[in-house]
């Protein structure tokens, strides 16, 4: 029953994406209907408290007495923002490198793609630690870290696509007309590569949202008192025995967000490949 309902919601033809988008929008604005603020402590409850509808703590409070529901909404917005920002930057960087390598060919291609190969060899966690050390922990470190480690896959995919495109007669004609590399990228390559670009971007966003959760869970990302799905989970795990309800919110929200983004990705790919 549940699976059937889920499938119905996710079926692109039934506007599943639209429904999910609507739910996400409600989640993001619902915080305004709660009397609590993410950083406000309710001194009157015995923290952590289970859901208490009389005091409008719909998901209970955390160990410090802050409203879990409002913090969850706040955290969702932060995680989503970080995910979209990091995905945009890493796709832009990856596409730029991949398309230049694919269209330029020769030595430029060899050097750029060997660079990508080397960067692939560096462990992701090591890079994240390094970046957190250099620019300090926080949302900026997460975005930079995800960009630095996330653009490589996109660069490879775009390199392959651009190499194929470069062999097509109209690209050869543009090259022999003497159009500069930047003009060929802007006028010919990007319009013809919207589908692989959309694929890259839509794969990257949910991946970045998940990765943000992972990084903040490790304590390298978004720091208290600011909330993100990762650090909410970390707190919930430390209070797991006393307050198991705190685990539910961030876990389900993370699953829901990734599902939503993947459905949207599917829609976007279908519309660009038309």
């Amino acid at each position: 029953m549940t699976m059937a309902a889920l499938r119905w919601m996710l079926a692109p033809t039934r506007g599943g994406a639209a429904i999910l988008l609507l739910i996400a929008a409600i989640l993001l604005i619902a915080g305004y209907f709660s009397p609590w603020q993410p950083q406000t402590i309710d001194w009157s409850v015995h923290a952590p408290s289970p859901p208490d509808y009389a005091r409008a703590h719909w998901l209970g409070t955390d160990a410090l007495g802050r409203d879990a529901f409002v913090r969850l909404l706040h955290a969702s917005a932060v995680s989503l923002l970080i995910g979209v920002a990091a995905a945009s930057l890493s796709v832009a960087l990856g596409a730029l490198v991949g398309v230049i390598a694919g269209l330029a060919g020769g030595r430029t291609q060899r050097w750029l793609m060997r660079g990508v190969d080397v960067a692939f060899g560096l462990p992701q966690v090591f890079m994240l630690l390094l970046i957190a050390m250099v620019i300090g922990r926080g949302p900026l470190a997460v975005v930079v870290g995800l960009t630095v480690t996330g653009w490589l896959a996109c660069a490879r995919l775009m390199h392959v696509e651009a190499s194929k495109l470069a062999e097509r007669p109209f690209m050869e004609a543009a090259r022999s007309m003497g159009l500069s590399l930047s003009a060929r990228i802007y006028r010919h390559a990007l319009p013809n590569l919207t589908t692989p670009l959309a694929v890259c971007f839509t794969l990257a966003v949910p991946q970045c949202v998940l990765s943000e959760g992972f990084i903040s869970f490790l304590g390298l990302g978004v720091q208290e008192p600011q909330a993100s799905l990762g650090n909410l989970l970390a707190q919930a795990v430390s209070e797991m025995e006393r307050a198991p309800w705190l685990l539910m919110g961030p876990t389900l929200t993370l699953i829901f967000l990734v599902l939503l983004l993947n459905t949207l990705a599917d829609r976007l790919q279908k519309s660009t490949s038309r």
Binding site: E172, A174, A183, R187, P191, N192
Partner: peptide
């Protein structure tokens, strides 16, 4: 060079006017 398959020598995503003006801009 003029190609045998003229259709594939034109960018499918550009209207003819732009294909021609790109030749001028080069």
């Amino acid at each position: 060079l003029l190609y045998q398959d003229a259709a594939s020598s034109l960018d499918p995503r550009l209207p003819i006017r732009q294909s021609l003006s790109l030749a001028l801009s080069s």
